[in-house]
Every structure is written in structure tokens, then in C-alpha cells.
Write a protein that binds this DNA or RNA. Structure first.
Lengths: 346, 346
DNA sequence: CGATCTTCAGAGAGCGCTCCCACCCCGGCC
DNA sequence: GGCCGGGGTGGGAGCGCTCTCTGAAGATCG
């Protein structure tokens, strides 16, 4: 490991000496200056300025046991989807909110199963005050690690196994997938559509499952033939659309579980000579700018505030951190609302 | 700032007591165990295991002045290009290499001019051993900050002003843009093409400038009309291609400064009824998988090892950190080779 | 067989900071 | 005018670790 080359930086001791006060007083000023008389405050401030003093974080952490850093854990398959603007936005939200709390973002990138050891060691090493983790699958090792090293954590997206949040005392932030889906389908119903199909996402993602549930909430007796599954990619959407048209040529509306699949469906619909929205109305989910604005017709979709969810994750984590010990159970998870954005496709 | 809720973790003292040795011996074992007799080593190891001991990084940093963390500074406009797989790959390379050095990646996200204060404070606060920064423009404040706080740094991409690296004693890692461009153009020449156009990138990026230079190296007396400028987006490539065809309908080859612009050019060529590669041969730059494999015909392009460049940045930084004081000037920057990948378009 | 050398373990001094506590000084009170 | 109280300040004890230095062994040699 490397050696710090920056020459010796001034210490609090030096500041105190220059200002003609004790180290304790200098410390008080540096940390806000409460309970120190104005003339002294000024003297210390000036000394800090002149010396270019910056507190040594390690020393501070050693005694306060807080280090002003939060880990963001990203598993490789997820990160690959950075091209999916989803993560970019969420991380941006997290980053922004963290600066408000004067905390830093430490990126923990999980490449494979072997990496979990490293992650566990890091999390357990007290390098960070807390952790933010994303959309876990059932078999993920992370929950076990989190329980073991007891690091305060907030999940992004509802974890994929029942009772996870309460069991682990780990809250999560997710958007109202089910409610959003309901709104999308109700909108199609209100348009007078009678045979509304659904292109669902992968079964191991709670967001996809919740969206199916929302669809079913509205269409209690929907023909199972009207639901096909994709994997959130455009191609899978195109394939699913083709199958749907083969099985139920009479369908007059489609709710796709994300925008990418909706764009694929749109392609198929055009190839098959169906006009959108006249013959088939189409609604997506996510309001992903790069997709939604480039389709023709522009896509009606369900918007979720992704950056806001990132910020919320941070705020929730900070609350966990501040409540601390008092036997406080898991703070409630947060479900953010969605809004239907009407464009040309439905 | 938050409070650490994890209960008190075992200290080295506790490990030493349990193993029946002194704190010093326990420390030696934890740090590799050199110079300690095997039976004692085992005893300490066992104690560590039983207690679940993890060294307190803050305490360690306090005395060693090394903290095993490196900042990656990403400015907003660049990060927006996370959708551009370029950054994803580079950050992945950095992340991978850092784990090899047992260092962590701290993401510093610059949102605007005001943020530089925060960055400077952080960098100056000794939170990280060094920093990695990307493709700076002339007016960037970062170099000034780096000089002021004296944090060891490595740039990704050649900085945009002359002598920057040597002035700042900051090395950089870049690919051989000029050589790669030369190879691309030579390839077109070897195909018997006589009127080879170039779609250049923005003038404020050194990579774009170097690629023009490479083009001119080969075609010393190229008609200026054969060079148009884009901004690295597909649309700009399409526009530039249209202008080129208007001005020089006789052109029979195009070298685009990146794959995205090449894909745009391809679109225009098809619209204008030019066959690729029969009528017009086309070469891109970057070998960006998502573009290169989806174009029709598949794109011949110049590959750069982006992940490798990320890793190289880390290795260079580690070298800077380890050399340390001995009046060592800036370590030499590294230019990585490029390779021409022949596909169908040229 | 004693003197010198070589290991290897332990004692102890900090690293730079925060925070508890003792102390001082001054105003207000009896 | 002595006493109490409280705001302000300084002293000093650590936080958990590394690392130098000392010293006790055992190994080697004349």
C-alpha cells in the first residue's frame, strides 16, 4: 500500500498554538464554535486560514466512531445496466443527497461470489457508517453479510423474499409498482379497450411481479393467454408481442412492464400492420427518456422518480444511523408514488 | 453525521489477551506474521477467528498515514456518458485493479463549479491516498486544486493544454489515438480508396484532435473539404456525412472519429443510396460493442483497451504513491496501443 | 564454558483528535 | 464582602493501532 506523499499537514495543535489557545478550544471552533467567545473564535478561524488546516479524518473517526462515508454496493449484473439510465439516476440522487449530509460515497463493486468476502471485510471493518444495496435476489449473500456484520443498510427495491425487510430490520425504498400498473391498466380500460394484454418482466424481480399484480388487480378475470413474459429487453418485448398477437389477434391494448419491452412491442405491432394507438393502445413503465421520446408514436408510460428514490434511500439510512440503539426496529420502508404520463401511444 | 450503531468490536488488545501474547505480536501476525514463531502465529490467528476481529482502519490510518482509498473524480457532463459504455468499462478496470491493491474506490461526483470546494476539501483532508481524474478541459479547476492540495493524481486521457502533465507532475494514461487513426486511414488506402473523408470529434477533446492528426499524417495533402466536425453523437455523424456527400460526392471512404458518429454516417449513406463497403468504405473508432455489432454491415473500427487503461491508471498511481518523496519527477505517462478490427464495413 | 551474536517478544510512545472534567473568573445574591 | 453558580477555558485521558527500542532467550564461536 502506498505512502502519503503530501508533506506533513498542520495539526490542531499547531492551530491552537498560533491562535494562542488550547487544543480543546481550537477543536470547539473547528466544530462549530459553540460556547467559545467571539474574539477567540476569530483568532482560531484566522489561524486555520493561515495554516490551511484541514482536520485529519482518521483521528476524528477514531474517537467519534463515525466516518462520514456510505457504501453503495453494486453487483456486476446490475452495474452492466448502467447503460440503463436507471442506475445512473439513482446513484446521482444518492450522491447529491450524501453531500447534503457531508458524507462520501464509496463504491463497492461486486464482481462475483468470491468478492463477498472482501465486501464483508470492508463493511465489517467500520470503514463506512452504512450501506446502500440494490434489488437483491433470493440467493444473494448480501443479506447474510449484513446481518453478520451488523452494518446499517437500506435496500433499493423490495427484496425478493418474503419478510426480508422485517427479518433483517432493513428498510427499503421502492416505487409503487403495483399502483402504477393499476393506473396504467385503468387508463387503458377508460379508453374503452376490452382485451388488454400484459408483457411481464422476469419472475425473479419483485418490480415485475408487482406490476403483474397491479394488472390483475384491475382485470380480475383476464385470460392467462393475455400475459406473456419477457426479460426487460426490447427484443424480448418484440417476441412477447408476436406471441400475444398469434394467440389473441383481437387484443386492443398492451401494458408492458417497462419501456424497453414496450419499444420492442411497438416494432412488432408495426411489422404486423397494427396502428398504435388506433388498433392497439400501448403503455410502458419507467418513463425512460431515451426510449420514450424516440419511439413513434411517443410512449405513454408510468413515471417513477428514480433520482428521488436514491435520495430517499440516503435519508432513510441517515435516520437509521441517528436513531441508533434505542431498540428501534426497522424504520418503515418507503413506497414512492408513480404518475401516468400520457403521450401518443395510449 | 450519523452514529455507528454496531456494538463495540474486538480490539487488537483483546486478541492479544486471548492468544496470550502482547499487542505488538498480535499486530505483527495480523500484518503478515513475519518474524513471529509459528506456534504463536497460530494462536493469534485462532484468537482473531474466534473473536471475529477486524482491524480498525481509522486507527491504522492515523499512524500509517495511508488509508487504502483512491478517489475517482467524475465531472457531471462526463458521467452523463455512463450510458456510453466507455466510463463503465474504465471504472470497472479501475475497480478491479484497486482490489488487487486492497484499496477502495471513493466516487467523487462533481456537479458544478460550486462543487470544487467540496472536492478540494475532501482531497486535501487526506481521506484518500490519491486521485484519478478524467479528460480535463482547459478551463477545468481540477488541476489547480490538485496542485494546491498536492494529492497524487493520474489523469485518464491526455489533458487538454500543452505541458499540463509535466507542469503538474501528473502523468496520464491514454490510448494511441494518433497511431490508431493512422492505421485506420492506411487500411482504407490499402483498400485502394482515393478520396478518404474524416468525421472529426469536438475540438476541445485531445482524443479528437489526435485522431485528426493521425488522419493528416497519412493524407498529407487531403482536401480540407474532406474533413467535417461532429460532436461524437450519432446524429452529428449523420449530419457531417450529409455535408461531406454534398461537397465531395466522389468520396469513397470515411474514417469517423468514433463508432457512434460512424453509425450515424452509415444511416446517411444508406439514405443516399451508397452501398457500404462497395461504394464507400467506413471505419470507426473505439470498438464499442453495442454499436459495432448492431450496425449493418458490421463496423470496422479501431479498438482501444478501455478497461486496461483503467487498470493502468491505478498501477501508475500506485507507482507514484510508492516512489514518494525522492525528488522523483512525474512518472512517464502511458500510451496504450490500439488495434484495427476488421469487419464488413471496410 | 563464558562471550558474542542472533532471534523474537514485549513495553511504551505516540498518530491527531474529541470530550470529560477540573478550574477559573466574574456577576449576582444574601 | 464572602459565597454560590455558571459560562468559558485548559488539562489530560484515551480512541486502536503501528513501530521502535529494549531485553530475554537460545545459538554460535573461540
Amino acid at each position: 500500500m502506498p505512502e502519503q506523499t503530501t508533506g506533513s499537514r498542520p495539526t490542531l495543535e499547531a492551530v491552537a498554538a498560533r491562535a494562542g489557545v488550547s487544543r480543546a478550544t481550537a477543536s470547539r471552533v473547528v466544530n462549530g464554535g459553540a460556547g467559545v467567545r467571539p474574539p477567540l473564535v476569530d483568532k482560531v478561524r484566522q489561524a486555520v486560514e493561515e495554516l490551511g488546516y484541514v482536520p485529519n479524518q482518521a483521528a476524528r473517526t477514531l474517537v467519534t466512531r463515525r466516518n462520514g462515508a456510505v457504501a453503495v454496493i453494486i453487483a456486476e449484473p446490475e452495474f452492466r445496466i448502467f447503460s440503463d439510465p436507471f442506475f445512473e439516476q439513482q446513484v446521482r440522487g444518492i450522491s447529491r443527497e450524501l453531500t447534503a449530509y457531508d458524507s462520501q460515497l464509496v463504491l463497492l463493486w461486486v464482481e462475483g461470489p468470491g468478492d463477498y468476502d472482501r465486501i464483508a471485510r470492508y463493511l465489517g471493518g467500520g470503514h463506512v457508517d452504512g450501506a446502500l444495496a440494490f434489488s437483491l435476489h433470493n440467493d444473494d449473500e448480501l443479506p447474510a453479510i449484513i446481518r453478520r456484520v451488523q452494518v446499517p443498510t437500506v435496500f433499493g427495491g423490495r427484496p425478493g423474499w418474503p419478510g426480508a425487510a422485517s427479518e433483517l430490520a432493513v428498510p427499503y425504498v421502492d416505487c409503487d409498482n403495483r399502483g402504477g400498473a393499476r393506473e396504467a391498466v385503468r387508463h387503458l380500460v377508460s379508453l374503452g379497450r376490452r382485451h388488454i394484454a400484459h408483457i411481464a418482466g422476469p419472475r425473479d424481480q419483485t418490480s415485475a411481479l408487482d406490476r403483474i399484480d397491479g394488472y390483475r388487480d384491475v382485470l380480475l378475470d383476464a385470460d392467462p393467454e393475455l400475459v406473456r413474459q419477457g426479460d426487460f429487453t426490447a427484443d424480448s418485448g418484440a417476441r412477447a408481442m408476436a406471441e400475444l398477437l398469434d394467440r389473441r389477434p383481437d387484443l386492443d391494448a398492451v401494458f408492458a412492464a417497462n419501456d424497453l419491452m414496450a419499444s420492442g412491442a411497438l416494432r412488432t405491432l408495426r411489422e404486423r400492420g397494427r396502428r398504435v394507438p388506433q388498433d392497439v393502445a400501448l403503455v410502458g413503465f419507467d418513463d425512460m427518456a431515451s426510449v420514450v421520446e424516440t419511439t413513434d408514436p411517443a410512449l405513454t408510460t408510468v413515471r417513477q422518480d428514480i433520482e428521488g428514490m436514491g435520495r430517499l434511500m440516503v435519508r432513510l439510512l441517515m435516520r437509521v444511523l441517528n436513531e441508533g440503539e434505542p431498540g428501534a426496529g426497522a424504520p418503515a420502508s418507503v413506497i414512492t408514488p408513480t404518475t401516468l404520463v400520457r403521450r401518443a401511444s395510449a
